[in-house]
């Protein structure tokens, strides 16, 4: 029995290693493939709106999907070492600031779905994780993640991806720190403090490495299965704008010279709800058409990091003043990021 499991695991390992060169060959030749399809197979005229739209689409969709599959696989393996329970234990009783930094970093690495924000919040508070530290986690977890990193890297270059990640982490650390300093515990719904959590009896932590590879593959299946459609739609909108919208069309509205563009795009972004996969292809086109980097980053962070559905969910455990403080502080952080990058670039 054990032997047969080992053999299937070895087969999976072998398959994974054989797929790597195939992956690389595909990725390295995407531009050639899309050019070949457009110019030779479809025989389309170069430089028309339609041919450039299609060329962009045929190039970008597989590029983003290939990157996603590889990196989500890696992240899935890394994530198998983390769990909300372990993160909670690591954060319990931590002092502020150092705790905020740790929480933001763990927010990136711990597997998290916004639908379990409430049990996670309750579990953290009950274990004695300070409120501000809990918020650092809750802000970082949806905003800074591997999907955002890959898509930004693929569509805008790695410099932008790193800037986004670092500033996202900074916002999470400082917003959480500020919420901690303001002592807003009284605006947490009273019943939260009465919750008693049991000790979970799962022993999922004991995994060998080939099991973790399976976890990585499962994660790819789950996440790519969930977001591929967003990517196709997002890139399709992006491709259409790439081909048809004139250059500098967005410059007046979202360009550097329009100072009000940063707060405006944050306000527009709050009620909008999308994950990184859906919004980033659209933002990449905004930038191509003359929107400035700071304004675009602010818009993206606002859409991903602050969302109306999340606020409604949080209403169950938080009173209005704390929700407003949370939204206000995060929005202010995003505002700073937007202004600073419009100023630098």
């Amino acid at each position: 029995m054990i032997k047969s499991i080992q053999i299937t695991n070895r087969k999976q390992l072998l398959l994974a290693f054989l797929l790597l060169p195939v992956w690389y060959l595909l990725y390295a030749n995407l531009q050639n493939i899309s050019d070949f399809l457009i110019d030779t197979v479809f025989q389309m005229q170069k430089g028309t709106h339609l041919s450039e739209t299609l060329r962009f689409f045929i190039f970008e969709v597989p590029k983003v999907l290939l990157l996603l599959v590889l990196i989500i696989f890696g992240v899935g393996i890394i994530r198998s070492y983390f769990s909300p329970e372990k993160t909670r234990n690591a954060l319990a009783g931590k002092s502020t600031f150092m705790g905020n930094i740790l929480a933001a970093l763990l927010g990136v690495l711990t597997p998290f779905c916004s639908c379990s924000a409430i049990p996670l919040f309750l579990g953290f508070v009950e274990a004695g994780v300070p409120l501000g530290v809990t918020f650092s986690f809750l802000i970082a977890a949806p905003m800074v993640n591997e999907i955002a990193l890959i898509m930004l890297g693929g569509l805008f270059g790695w410099k932008t991806a790193i800037i986004y990640t670092l500033t996202g982490l900074l916002i999470a650390v400082f917003a959480g720190y500020l919420i901690g300093v303001l002592k807003l515990e009284k605006y947490v719904q009273a019943w939260v403090f009465e919750v008693k959590t049991g000790q979970a009896g799962t022993d999922e932590t004991k995994m060998n490495f080939s099991h973790r590879i399976k976890v990585g593959l499962d994660t790819v299946k789950e996440i790519v299965g969930k977001i591929w459609l967003y990517i196709v739609i997002g890139v399709a909108i992006g491709a259409a704008a790439h081909g048809y919208v004139p250059e500098d069309y967005m410059a007046a509205l979202m360009g550097k010279s329009a100072w009000y563009s940063v707060p405006l795009s944050i306000l527009i972004g709050i009620p909008m709800y999308s994950n990184a996969a859906g919004i980033i292809p659209i933002v990449s086109v905004l930038i191509e058409k003359g929107a400035s980097l700071g304004t675009s980053l602010a818009f993206m962070m606002s859409v991903i990091g602050l969302s109306l559905p999340e606020i409604i969910i949080l209403k169950k455990v938080l009173k209005m003043p704390l929700i407003l403080a949370f939204v206000g502080i995060v929005a202010a952080g995003i505002l700073c990021v937007g202004f600073i990058f419009n100023f630098i670039y």
Binding site: P84, C113, P119, L122, F124, W191, T197, A200, K316
Partner: peptide
């Protein structure tokens, strides 16, 4: 029910 879920020590649903 969130309180019951928590009583099992579950933080991710």
């Amino acid at each position: 029910d969130m309180v019951k879920i928590l009583s099992y020590g579950v933080m991710s649903t």
